[in-house]
Amino acid sequence: MIKAYAASAPGAKLEPFEYDPGPLAHDDVEIDVESCGICHSDLSMLDNDWGFTQYPFVPGHEVIGVVNAVGDNVTSIQVGQRVGLGWHSAYCNTCGTCQSGDHNLCSKAEMTMGGRHGGFAEKVRAQASAVVPLPEGINPDSAGPLLCGGITVFNPLIQFGVKPTFKVGVIGIGGLGHIALQFLNAWGCEVTAFTRSTKEADELKKLGAHKVLNSSNAEELEAAEGRFDFILSTVNVKLDWNAYIATLAPKGRLHFVGATLEPLDINVFPLIMGQRSVSGSPVGSPATIRNMLDFASLHNIAPVTEYYSFEQINEALDRLRNGKPHYRIVLKR
C-alpha cells in the first residue's frame, strides 16, 4: 500500500489516504518521494477548475526522489538514482510527435496527477521515459519546481529560438517569472521585468532583470514601444494585451505560458504590420527537461522556495491559495 494525502471532493482538505498500486508495470519505475513542489496547477486540479479531476485526488507533480524499483523492461533508470518527475508521467512513445522528440505534445500523454495518484505521497510511479535523473550540482531540496515552473519558462527558449541578443520582457514575477528572469539572464538576453510594484526592483535585479518597468504606468509602457523581441507572459489574468503587443519590435513575439482563461482581446492590424506573433506552449519534453537541469546546474539557477513538511500540506496549500508564498513552496521530508 502507498500512503498519500488525498481530497475527496473539490476544494476539500487533504486527508491521509492509502491505495494499492498493484504490480509494477514493465516500463515503470517506483520512486520514494523525498520532496514535492506545490504550484497553482495543484490548486486548479484540487478545485476541479478544469473539469476533469477524479476523486479521491492526490495532487503533486514536482517530485524529487530516489528510485526503489524498476520494471522488467527498464534500462535507462537504475535503482538508487535520484530523479525528478514533472507534469507528465507517461507517453505513448509511438506517435509521430513522440518519435520526433516532442513527447510533451503527445495527445495520449498521461498526467502525473490526472488519471493516477500524484506526488503528495510516500511513493509515486511513472513510466521510465518520463523520469529524468538529477544532475550533479542541482540541490534536490529546491529542484522540484524546476520540473513544472522551470521547464514551462525554459521550453520557449528552445522552441522559439530565443537568441542571447534578444531584448526580453517577463510579465508576472511570481512562481514562474522569477525563474524566467534567472534563465533569461544566464541565456545572455537583456531582461526587463514588468511589475506593478517597483518596491521589488532591487530583488528583481538580483534575480536577473536588467531593467524594471512599471506596467501600471501607461507612460512607461508607451515609452517601451517597439523595444522587445520576445515577451513571456506567466500570468493567469486578463491584461491589456494590445498595450504589450505595442512594445514588441518588428517580428517580435508575445508568448503565453500562464493559463489565462479569458479570451484574448487582440487587434490584428499591429500583428500584420509588424509581422508580430502570439503563441503559447506547455511544459517541455524529457529531453528538454534534461537540458534545462544541466543549464540550471551550470549557472547555479534555483527556485526561491519556502519549505513545509508533508504533514503541513493543508497549511501550505492555504498559503499558496492566498497568494502569500515568496515565489515557490516545497513539501520536504
Score class of each variant (00 low, 15 high):
K108L: 14
K108M: 11
A109C: 12
E110T: 03
E110D: 02
E110F: 07
M111W: 14
T112I: 14
M113I: 05
M113G: 10
M113R: 13
G115V: 08
R116I: 02
R116D: 01
R116H: 02
G118T: 04
G118Q: 13
G118R: 03
G118I: 05
G119C: 03
F120C: 08
F120I: 15
F120K: 05
F120P: 02
E122N: 12
E122C: 12
E122G: 15
K123Y: 14
V124T: 04
R125I: 12
Q127A: 10
Q127D: 14
A128E: 09
A128W: 00
A128P: 02
A128G: 07
A130W: 09
V131R: 08
V131Q: 04
V132N: 02
V132I: 15
P133Y: 01
P133A: 03
E136M: 11
G137P: 04
I138H: 04
I138W: 09
N139Y: 07
N139C: 13
P140D: 05
P140V: 00
D141Q: 12
S142V: 14
G144I: 01
P145S: 02
L147G: 09
L147P: 05
L147I: 03
C148H: 09
G149K: 08
I151H: 00
V153M: 06
V153F: 07
F154K: 04
F154L: 06
F154W: 11
N155M: 14
P156Y: 02
P156N: 09
I158Y: 11
F160D: 12
G161E: 07
K167L: 07
V168F: 06
V168D: 03
V168Y: 03
G169C: 00
G169T: 03
V170T: 11
I171F: 06
G172I: 15
I173Y: 01
I173N: 07
G174N: 10
L176G: 02
G177Q: 09
I179V: 15
A180R: 08
A180Y: 08
L181I: 03
L181A: 02
Q182L: 04
F183A: 07
F183V: 09
L184G: 12
N185F: 15
N185I: 11
A186K: 08
W187G: 13
W187P: 08
W187D: 09
G188L: 04
C189N: 12
C189I: 09
E190V: 14
E190I: 13
T192W: 09
T192H: 05
A193G: 01
T195S: 15
R196G: 10
S197D: 14
S197C: 10
S197Y: 08
T198L: 07
T198E: 08
